[in-house]
Design a protein around this nucleic acid. Structure first.
Lengths: 153, 153
DNA sequence: TCTTGACCTCAAGTTGACTTGAAGTGGCAC
DNA sequence: GTGCCACTTCAAGTCAACTTGAGGTCAAGA
């Protein structure tokens, strides 16, 4: 497959494929002139990368899941750990969602007068303090990641 | 309160406070010499900012929640919308977590032979394709945000 | 043979939310 | 009065994961 076909079948942009190759996340099996040739298995690899990213792994972490021989070599402990992390995130987001939902429906004239909203603030403050003291920054979800990038025209 | 006290009581670093002031998210009520003086209400403000960040709002979005007079002016529709977004994220993370959890416990010798794991990959691929086609990049959670920053020593 | 245009490389740009360092100011304890 | 040190400003750095543009190569169709 040439790069255009991989793009077509995976939805991953060519620039990203080249970037992933440079990072060692995928590899081409040869060239046709200058042009990269990819094995069909690259699609599976891209799927794994996509899952990993969704689960919150960095590209470097994902790279570690591939044994030097190219085979998948995922530590089951690591998976369980990641699942636990996701669980914590889910719990947090859930209480956040419930708080927002309530605040949206709350009849209090101003949000500051709504006890549920104030409780939300309390939560944030608590977290702020326990976090700030000695643990340093903890892993956190980020919603709204940076969007379009690139050099200006 | 001087900046050190705000830091102590909120856990937010001084550099962040100055940055927030520059962005118009908080304001000092005056100076004592060069030094900023903050009203106690800045703590509440910081709590709101923290909640907003946790819910996935950008600093710019948070800034819009404050009316020009400094009062909180949150659109209830916006809150509901954000809650819905969180909901979608939660659903996705949940299926991700379940998949990881299964893969971690799965007795198949290699993950590629585990049907649940393969189903996970299928999900990712599907999403990849539907996303790539015409919608462009969609808002996505990001786990593992960039960590420590700053100029090197 | 010529043209086209898909592909290539490489350096540099982008995003958001901060942090860092250097260099300067000035309040206050002594 | 003087020294310390917390505070200030400002420009520039950091992070990850890409994207972009310029400038070049070359396979294949006309």
């Amino acid at each position: 497959m040439d790069i255009a076909e991989v793009v077509r079948r995976s939805g991953v942009p060519a620039s990203t494929l080249r970037y992933y190759e440079e990072k060692g996340l995928v590899s081409s099996i040869g060239r046709h002139g200058l042009r990269r040739l990819f094995a069909a298995s690259v699609l599976e690899r891209l799927a794994i990368i996509s899952v990993g990213r969704s689960a919150g792994l960095s590209l470097d972490e994902i790279a570690q899941m591939f044994a030097p021989d190219g085979k998948l070599q995922i530590d089951r402990k690591m998976l369980a750990l990641k699942a636990d992390e996701l669980d914590a995130t889910i719990r947090k987001l859930t209480s956040m969602r419930d708080g927002l939902r309530h605040a949206a429906a709350c009849p209090a004239p101003s949000h500051m007068e709504c006890p549920t909203f104030r409780r939300l603030l309390g939560l944030a403050t608590t977290e702020m303090n326990s976090k700030g003291k000695r643990e340093g920054r903890s892993k956190k979800h980020r919603v709204n990641p940076p969007q379009r990038t690139g050099r200006p025209r």
